[in-house]
Amino acid sequence: MTMTREQLARYVDHTLLRTDATPADVRALAREAADLGAFSICISPSLLADVGPLPDGLALATVCGFPSGKHTSAVKATEAAQAVADGADEVDMVIDIGRLRAGEHEAVRADVEAVRRAMPETALLKVIIESAALTDLEVVAACRAAEAGGAQFVKTSTGFHPAGGATVEAVELMARTVGGRLGVKASGGIRSWADAVAMVGAGATRLGLSGTAAVLAGAGAGAGC
């Protein structure tokens, strides 16, 4: 597919979720995101209050139940509500993939719904399913549970799971499953222009990138330019 640098930038959640990130780091991230034309920044919830006023047109995203998903639903719901109160426009929550793999799909749906109900309707909820750690059938089940729970997006990965991050195949499967009713965020291991464009071509409507500048610098070089 053909995309400009500016078009691809608007897919990007410019991400900094390192455990050693400082308030100064997230303020620098916001400035860089604005310069690059990204859609949003995605930072840890403890740093939301430190980022300061954002440039016009830049959304603020954070994570919830991150990165294990093993928090109780009540804890995730409280964390999400606090994040929105602290300024987040979007929350990326992690499901308990162990329960999903155990076939407890209703528990996963209820987990998503608890977080969704704790957030105002104006805030957007993305659900991280760790697609690389799941079978195709489990990916489909996770997407269905996320949709039934009221999420607006499904997302491939935290970027912290040893199984890996986003793949074109997983994004295609997720996009087919949600059928345009939900967005699809590809995140984890996307490090080149070609990778990013391939994810969009597979159906991703948002990209989680930590190396955004390097990815966008590849515009015009190779496939998809």
Rank of each mutant, 00 (worst) to 15 (best):
T4D: 07
L209D: 08
S157F: 03
V26N: 07
V140I: 14
A163F: 15
D25H: 10
A132S: 13
E32A: 15
Y11C: 03
D35A: 15
G222P: 11
S46Q: 14
T15A: 02
D195W: 10
M119Y: 10
A110L: 11
D35M: 15
E147K: 03
D92T: 03
A77R: 06
R116V: 08
A213M: 01
A21V: 09
D195K: 09
A83R: 08
M199I: 04
M199T: 09
T122H: 06
G188R: 03
A33Q: 05
L100D: 13
D195P: 07
L36E: 02
E169C: 08
L173V: 13
V108C: 05
G201I: 00
G183F: 01
H161W: 09
S210T: 15
T158Q: 12
A61I: 01
A107S: 14
A123E: 03
L134N: 07
A223E: 13
A21T: 09
T2I: 06
A132N: 07
G180Y: 10
F153L: 06
F39M: 12
G220T: 01
D89P: 05
D136I: 06
L216A: 13
E169M: 11
L125P: 02
P23L: 12
R101I: 03
L16C: 14
D35H: 13
R191A: 00
A204R: 02
I190F: 03
H71G: 05
T212V: 13
L124H: 09
V197G: 06
T62M: 05
A186D: 11
D86H: 04
R101C: 03
E113L: 08
D136Y: 11
P67W: 00
V168E: 15
D92K: 07
A163S: 14
D13Y: 06
P162R: 12
A24I: 00
G183V: 01
S68I: 13
R99W: 15
L48Q: 06
R117E: 08
K185S: 02
R5V: 04
A148C: 05
E104R: 14
V200S: 03
G224I: 00
C64S: 06
V63T: 07
D89C: 04
R31V: 08
K185V: 03
T122I: 04
E32V: 13
A133M: 14
A102R: 12
G183C: 03
D111H: 12
V178W: 04
T2W: 08
R116P: 06
A186Y: 14
A74W: 13
L16P: 05
V112P: 01
V115H: 08
Q152N: 05
G87R: 00
F160T: 11
P120L: 11
V84L: 05
L54D: 06
L134A: 02
T19R: 15
T22A: 09
D111M: 05
S73Q: 11
V197D: 09
L58E: 06
A145F: 07
V112S: 01
A170Q: 14
E106T: 12
A163Y: 14
A198H: 01
S44T: 13
R181W: 08
A198G: 05
V75N: 14
A132W: 12
